[in-house]
Design a protein around this nucleic acid. Structure first.
Lengths: 146, 146
DNA sequence: CTGTATCCTATATGATACTG
DNA sequence: CAGTATCATATAGGATACAG
């Protein structure tokens, strides 16, 4: 019965690993930016509505229109998360009805700049990846390549 | 009832936006690397088991041990996705039992290098983000700060 | 205008058992 | 060793209705 074996040991190693992942800066950052609307919002607030200008404060409704597919729930939720991280600020003006504007912070802007690298890589290698996928698919016989 | 209004227009704009996102290189790339084990695998294959060396081919079981928490399903699934994208290669040696080794490609290595930027940013700003979160939480009264 | 509250679905991930 | 197949679960994301 001295069965402190296999399953238990694996379970412990897994717990330790999850604990490590929970504090790993890179991993946390990846989770932070992985949300469907995170980069879109940072991009809108960091480069303006046309994605070619500079940072500019925007209102809730303006963001809602710009990110055409976003639900109110996700827009609010994502903005709150960004605000909590200090990547954007939220300013309420007590007009009637109330006016709220969101603005990217310096920290948020630095992240936005950082992500440009990813954008460059993505655009440079999209074709190559697509070709690899196509080759893999025909070789594996996935689609109607019969 | 010429009711081509509100809801319908929004639905169309949303469909168009989703179509745009589906082909946007940056967004596709972000989805690609967002998997829980993607960066971990690229890192293992790109920097060796100790994360300090150079690229080295590794076997399925070796990766399984290194990424202590991963399930067989997710390990296989993630490796296949990476292989399909041309980020890693899979080599089968017909010994008995069979031997399979995975190796990062040049393309995968270039992505791995790219992600170093994210790592640097993450490690440089972890404390700042944590401080922002703490400030936000106490200001909002979320935790037991009453 | 700027949200909140509720309910619902899809997808990612995981546990377990089995195989060449 | 290196998986596949199946079942189960958690979470992200979304639709809808309502409110200050």
């Amino acid at each position: 019965m001295a069965t402190t074996t296999a399953a238990e040991i694996r379970a412990r190693r897994k717990a330790e690993y999850n604990a490590f992942l929970a504090v790993c800066p890179s991993h946390k950052m990846l989770e932070r930016i992985s949300g469907k609307w995170v980069m879109l919002l940072l991009s809108a607030l960091g480069s303006g509505p046309d994605c070619t200008g500079g940072p500019r404060p925007m209102r809730y409704s303006e963001l809602s229109r710009l990110l055409a597919g976003v639900s109110q729930k996700m827009l609010t939720q994502t903005l709150r998360a960004l605000e909590r991280d200090g990547l954007v600020t939220r300013t309420v003006t007590p007009t009637v009805p109330v006016t709220v504007s969101y603005e990217i912070t310096e920290l948020g802007l630095s992240l936005h700049q950082m992500m440009r690298g990813l954008k460059v890589w993505a655009e440079a290698h999209t074709d190559e990846v697509a070709a690899n996928q196509a080759a893999y698919d025909t070789a594996t016989g996935c689609p109607l390549s019969g």
